[in-house]
Design a protein around this nucleic acid. Structure first.
Length: 338
DNA sequence: TATGTCACG
DNA sequence: ACGTACGTGACATAC
């Protein structure tokens, strides 16, 4: 039985593609498809986490120790391996059960999670100088709802759930240089409609379009792009004669300065937080970094002090034209803290 | 060892 | 007609 249309998608080696997005799109074609997806997600959780993490416990102290790599990610992010603790599940119900297994060292501690709210969009608001985007962040608005209000020309209070969801997808895609095709696939809408939304977005946020063109232009001239703190990413493909190769480099030129600036900012915060915790001789410890989030083992007598210190130093690590906002919470496990 | 898939930001 | 969204790491499988 033929599934997936007349010309099923193939991978570059000629195999039929069966990735989640492909199977989901044809789920109505056969009753087995949802069962396959369900099986796959369960096997992923079992194989990568449930069966494996217990083997990573260090017998010396009963704890799991990851490695942080400082010279792997091209944008300046950290990476984590053996085991990777930057991809612990959170999106599904059963995945969240795994996250609950991460707990404080003993009953005198809680887990504190502090994460930057929308840090990459705030960075683009800063770097682009876009007045509408900056104003939304200064007013503390729900950025996706504010985006929807602009793009769909309605009052922010009148934004529908569907409009907000589409605006969120646009905000998300902007950070990666996504086009009309990608957005249409993502939202399950016609390509023309997706193009209309993107056109509306750039009309309302012209500074963002300007930023994208500027990064590409700078890269063509200098051969690299850079973060606010001067970290460079060289992109020789920016002048490629192959359209596909060049377009890929252009997306990287758009994304790398903001992803890399976010990485720079949290690294500054980590250094300052660690210094202050040492100076104050605190019992709490910084445990994990997950790109825009820091996780601490927080001694119960230090909760107020640590939360104030972390919030101040994370939000103030690099002053921008818009506020940096950090959300935080203490819990008895990582899921509760998040 | 290469490939496809999927977990996270 | 083609390709189409950035950055990672781990696992299962085929070769």
């Amino acid at each position: 039985m033929k599934l997936g249309g007349e010309k099923p998608k193939k991978t570059k080696t000629g195999q039929y593609q069966t990735s989640e997005d492909i199977l989901s799109a044809m789920a109505h074609e056969h009753a087995v498809i949802p069962l396959i997806l369900d099986y796959r997600s369960l096997r992923k959780l079992k194989g990568t986490y449930v069966d494996t993490l217990p083997l990573a416990v260090d017998p010396a102290d009963g704890r799991i120790h990851t490695n942080y790599r400082q010279a792997v990610a091209a944008t300046g992010r950290l990476s984590s391996d053996d085991p990777n603790l930057q991809n612990i599940p959170i999106r599904t119900e059963k995945g969240r059960e795994i996250r609950k297994a991460f707990v404080p060292r003993d009953e005198n501690f809680g887990l504190l999670s502090a994460d930057y709210s929308q840090i990459e969009l705030r960075i683009i608001a800063h770097m682009s100088g876009d007045p509408n985007m900056q104003e939304a962040f200064r007013q503390g608005l729900d950025i996706h709802a504010a985006t929807a209000a602009k793009v769909f020309n309605t009052a922010i209070g009148e934004v529908t759930r569907d409009q907000r969801s589409r605006a969120k997808a646009v905000n998300f895609g902007i950070a990666y240089g996504q086009g009309a095709f990608g957005l249409s696939q993502n939202l399950g809408i016609p390509r023309g409609e997706a193009q209309g939304i993107i056109d509306g977005y750039f009309a309302e946020f012209p500074g963002v379009k300007g930023y994208m063109d500027e990064m590409i232009g700078f890269c063509r001239e200098h051969g690299y792009v850079q973060t606010m703190m001067g970290r460079r990413r060289y992109l020789p493909d920016i002048t490629s004669g192959n359209n596909t190769v060049r377009a890929a480099a252009e997306r990287v030129a758009i994304n790398a300065p903001m992803q890399g600036t976010a990485a720079d900012i949290i690294k500054v915060a980590m250094i300052q937080i660690h210094a202050r915790m040492q100076a104050e001789k605190m019992k709490s410890k910084l445990l994990l970094q997950v790109h825009d989030e820091l996780v601490f083992d927080c001694h119960k007598t230090e909760e107020t002090e640590l939360m104030a210190l972390v919030k101040e130093l994370m939000e103030g690590a690099l002053p921008l034209a818009v506020p940096l906002v950090v959300d935080m919470r203490v819990g008895k496990n990582w899921l509760e803290a998040h």
